[in-house]
Design a binder for these strands. Structure first.
Lengths: 95, 95
DNA sequence: TGACTCCATGTCTGTTCTGACATAGTTTCC
DNA sequence: GGAAACTATGTCAGAACAGACATGGAGTCA
């Protein structure tokens, strides 16, 4: 980590949080799936509230899904995507 | 569901258990990941016990992962695969 | 401005998953 | 056959997650 003249330091978030490569892959996977949820929802012209109703969950949970919140499992994201009509083949491409 | 002369009936497991297409995709995804765990473990010449030690978990959990047990989350399978050296690109192909 | 819609975020409670343990079954040697 | 190594399965306490609710911020429109 390299110190700069302005007081800031240089270095990756990964190093700072001491995340392994595996952790990074996992987090990036969640982020990719989260983006996909938002994309599919918007393609279908649904609000978070409308999607939540369809999934029998709450708007806040949909918001957290799309935000790739740490309290959202990949299981939840996948179930959501599949219920939005995605299949495994399309999923593979989204990764 | 069609009845046959021998007393058995014809019909898919999906219909019998009333699983939606989304459920099927989810379950099949878990099974694909489970197979991949076993493959990678064996490629590395590890026993379930040895892999469990590396993952800081128990042999029984590794067995359940590879069996695609319902109590095993996709999160756990993905974390395992990533720790076995897989990346998202390879993951996509395994689906 | 205020009313309205949509999305973001903190927190609570009940449910689900994880790791661990025990134990049983399987396979591979001698 | 029997021992040893490996894998499968049931159960449980504690950790993590889901859904719900409250609330706040940002944008739109009259």
């Amino acid at each position: 980590m390299k110190k700069l003249k302005n007081g800031w330091v240089e270095g990756s978030v990964q190093d700072f949080l001491e995340l392994s490569d595996a952790d990074m892959e996992f987090i990036e996977t969640r982020r990719a799936l989260a983006r996909q949820v938002r994309t599919l929802r918007q393609e279908r012209g649904l609000t978070q509230t409308a999607l939540a109703a369809r999934l029998k969950t709450s708007q806040s949970r949909v918001a957290k899904m799309e935000a790739a919140d740490a309290t959202v499992s990949i299981d939840l994201l996948l179930q959501t995507l599949f219920r939005l009509g995605m299949n495994r083949h399309q999923l593979a491409k989204a990764l």
